[in-house]
Design a protein around this nucleic acid. Structure first.
Lengths: 329, 329
DNA sequence: AACCTGATGGCAACCCCTTGTCGTCTGTTG
DNA sequence: CAACAGACGACAAGGGGTTGCCATCAGGTT
């Protein structure tokens, strides 16, 4: 027995299909008594409007896609959770897409979804600017962990956060840092590097950079070895996963943390609190990033014409100090 | 400028819309030269078939939904990843749904998605059996981490795994274990409990159970306190998160792991390797669970009539021994 | 009582694509 | 050269719902 349609409801209620349709979509166009009658019949039949038929005409699907650069990165859990929650609150469905650190995959997946979703939330997109602009021409887009003029975005306030990191390290007397850079096409990597560098200049520290590294724990060994070669006394890794991988390698090589070298990460993932020593890291309200991003997206997909405003939101960061940083012994 | 439709392509190519449609959906019904012509025009125009219009008629959406009991549980990351990968390989879209440990939310979300997806993969569903059967009547369903006769499922082989755990603990001379149970309506909790219990009987160990506990690190404190009261020398927690929470609490209370008490978890999440001491846990190929589940689901949604076969797959587990287990000192 | 107004609901076109049916044209066969 | 088979493509009817337009009707006005 197929799902009942608006026709079945109309027949059972003795009204026209249009009346049934209006009872659901613009209730005040229909007499209250008729409406109640229709609702009760619909409930009896177990009628539910078919979202596809609806989307066909309206072009609105009540669905948004969230694309993340690497779904296995715990950092995204919170983002995903915030986004999912916000989407659900508006009865939107969240489609999750994993770009696997590949711009190609990312782009193809997005294009595949264009006809099916109302907009995109892109997390740490690895796509070049022009692609992003093009996609934004097809559907509303909100960037997370990336900024681009004329596109709305939500990021954590990294400039200030990086400054905090450098200050924190400087306070322990460190004079030479090295930044283990993230992927080449990562906006965050560029941003963090320049923020660290200028903070270093301001505070009179030398800041080197090596990389790029894929920000996973498994790439920490290569990163650690490279870092040691620079002679820096403090390592700032592109994210916590990389930092954890680095600390493992350092332990293997009997380099003590923080007595010989300090390590700092980004993201404050769950594991940062569990590893030994605990990882000092720059955290922030990641769930809020996801939430706010979807929030902005839903406004843009809303009935109002896109107002031309492209909010660029920067949420505060906080340096979570644990045991991986300290003075050299 | 709206997306080009089949009509635009037909007009530009000088053929009927049906010809364009068939060129895409049943290519051998159309002359090769005409077909190529249509394809090139379509490419020029940037035409892509509208999946909703297609779904309207065919009822197939090329979308599957994955519902997880709690999206913040790292254990699901691998499941999600495996599922996403498998879905993508068949050009299916994966919709991710978070049930937040609430049967109500889970059910509502599923019902909302019924018209939009081809099937469901349910991870550790908290729904009662009859709900699951009912949902399976509407759309194909594959269960993960739960078994129910007549429904296909993918689980990790826990009976044997639990036996391994008990053997491992027995080999250290433990004679009294306590299982910190997961949520009341969790099939896994029931399964683990009975497997641990029968393994205990077989090997001559006393096995207690306390709980239920929400399997998050934050609930570890209550669980740890309860476990201590039982006087057991080994704690088997419902999952790694709970185990980690327990170990934290034990550290607070100056109970040494493993000298005073041993701790075992389930899932082998990333963090199990990072905490101190490293957590002994029952792992398995979680990504495979997600992959196989989607695989089965796609077969069931495929053109073949559901063959009545409901594969119940059990994948192997492996006990990952770290430092949280040992003999009492 | 004649007239006006606003509320109500029906008709039918449309959203984009698929598909059963049927006509047409090409090439083949006797 | 006529007749025919087969390949191809056009027509039109949905699939489920929305919406502009119009007819109707009840209630209110003068």
């Amino acid at each position: 027995m197929p799902r009942p349609t608006i026709y079945d409801v109309a027949a059972a209620a003795g009204v026209a299909t249009s009346t049934v349709s209006r009872a659901f979509s613009s209730p005040n166009r229909v007499n209250a008594r008729t409406r109640e009658h229709i609702f009760s019949i619909a409930a009896d039949l177990g009628y539910r409007p078919n979202p596809h038929a609806r989307a066909l005409l309206s072009g609105r699907h009540h669905t948004v896609a969230m694309v993340v650069s690497d779904i296995t990165n715990p950092h995204y859990f919170e983002l995903i959770r915030g986004a999912e929650l916000r989407a659900r609150a508006s009865e939107y469905t969240l489609v999750l897409v994993n770009a696997e650190e590949s711009p190609r995959v990312e782009y193809d997946q997005i294009q595949r979804l264009v006809p099916s979703v109302d907009g995109f939330v892109l997390g740490a997109s690895r796509l070049p600017d022009e692609n992003l602009v093009q996609i934004a021409g097809q559907r509303p887009v909100v960037l997370m962990s990336r900024e681009l003029s004329r596109l709305p975005s939500v990021v954590l306030e990294h400039t200030q956060g990086c400054h905090q990191i450098v200050e924190h390290l400087a306070s322990f007397g460190h004079q030479h840092l090295v930044y283990l850079a993230g992927p080449r096409n990562s906006w965050m990597a560029t941003t963090r590097w320049s923020a660290l560098k200028s903070a270093g200049e301001e505070l009179g520290l030398r800041v080197d950079r090596i990389g790029p590294f894929t920000p996973k724990a498994s790439h920490g060994a290569a990163a650690a070895d490279g870092a040691i070669r620079t002679g820096a006394t403090a390592i700032v890794a592109h994210n916590d996963l990389l930092a954890i991988g680095v600390m493992r390698r350092l332990a293997q090589r009997s380099v003590r943390v923080p007595q010989d070298v300090s390590v700092v990460g980004f993201d404050n993932i769950f594991a940062a609190d569990l590893c030994t020593p605990g990882l000092t890291t720059l955290g922030g309200a990641h769930a809020d990033v996801g939430r706010v991003a979807v929030d902005i997206l839903l406004q843009a997909t809303g009935p109002l014409q896109p107002s031309g405003a492209s909010p660029q939101v920067a949420l505060p960061t906080e340096l979570v100090v644990r045991e991986s940083t300290g003075a050299r012994a």
